[in-house]
Design a protein around this nucleic acid. Structure first.
Lengths: 194, 194
DNA sequence: GCTATGCTATGACGATCGTCATAGCCGGTG
DNA sequence: CACCGGCTATGACGATCGTCATAGCATAGC
């Protein structure tokens, strides 16, 4: 495995995550992800032998890990700073894309395959959500929040942000994000002071 | 227009909303919506001459109106009762479908078409979200909440519920919904008492 | 220089998609 | 009874999908 091949692989994964965040899972084709990464179609099945399912799963995990890393770093300055960074991160994605992009993890979560068992990509999405919640809940506990309150508030934050990003896209406005930002910030402040 | 034809039309719209809430927008084909409603494929383009776009838009509005009607009724018993009914409504959909169904309005909001201008279905989704927010905000104001606080909290509620439903699907658990329910209920109580 | 290995290039397969055209049925009107 | 308009039935169209097979290239080790 040469160094450039690793780059091509990462470009495909990152591009797939971006395309899924814009058009959704089913409207993102293997052909277009390859074209977007300037890679031949055949290479896709060289790097991802298990096909689209594998690529989607890696795209979800890639987004999850990248966001978790940013969140972990910003949480070092406290829960409020972490929340603000988390909100700013998604706000930038929505604004920079002119309300065309959202969260690929959410997109994967709302499109179910016809199979009975949940696919690997959906399990990855659940793991990503849980990881984000755990980071937030841990920081809240470290700053004095009750464990139960910390866990519930962390879930509310992740859910609200995901939902708000989708609402911003539909409304073509950042107003929902600004509204929930203010509400969530007050909540976090109350939780770590009570 | 006979009476039975209206019923067929409504069956197609309601079925499309259900399928979109499960598989997403792009994985819901006109053929399968027709089959699901036991209607011939040709009839679909008789009832919806503008094609899939029209059917999807009507499915979004159908879900929005149905939910708004339920919400309006339950809000007569106050904001807390309305919130609980709103949460119970989505909880029932998630549980009854064995974590396979979610909100079709959210599904439409996260799948963008390749066109420049937002399609009618996305505008309908934005209207639905706004309608739900207005209902909640109005009830909050009537019970003593500050107008600004009422509007922000209403946005948070809608966004959190939409996000939480998606998280419940991914995690195959109602835990997120129960967590946010408790948090939101406390918030509403504080808003109408402060 | 030769060969093995990793990646590219190309094209095909069956399936399904949205859309549309056209012909037939069927009940109510005159 | 004839007729006509709403609805059904059927089949086709071009396009695109995921997937795969195979042949070509290029580079690194011997």
């Amino acid at each position: 495995m040469t160094k450039s091949s690793t780059t091509v692989r990462q470009r495909i994964v990152a591009g797939a995550a971006d395309m899924i965040s814009r058009r959704g899972l089913n409207a993102t084709s293997i052909r277009e992800t390859a074209k977007h990464a300037r890679a031949p179609l055949g290479s896709t099945y060289h790097y991802f032998p298990e096909g689209k399912q594998q690529l989607v799963t890696e795209a979800v995990r890639y987004t999850g890990a990248w966001t978790a890393g940013s969140l972990r770093k910003e949480l070092q300055a406290g829960p409020v700073a972490g929340l603000r960074a988390f909100l700013a991160l998604w706000r930038k994605i929505v604004v920079d894309s002119d309300f065309r992009a959202g969260c690929p993890v959410l997109a994967v979560s709302v499109e179910e395959p016809p199979t009975d068992e949940p696919p690997a990509s959906l399990l990855a999405a659940a793991d990503v959500f849980t990881e984000w919640e755990n980071l937030l809940a841990g920081s809240l506990r470290e700053h004095g929040a009750e464990p139960r309150q910390a866990a519930q508030l962390a879930t509310l934050i992740v859910a609200a942000v995901e939902g708000t990003v989708a609402m911003c896209r539909a409304k073509r406005s950042t107003q929902p994000l600004d509204d929930t930002a203010e509400q969530l910030q007050a909540l976090v402040l109350a939780a770590i002071e009570g």
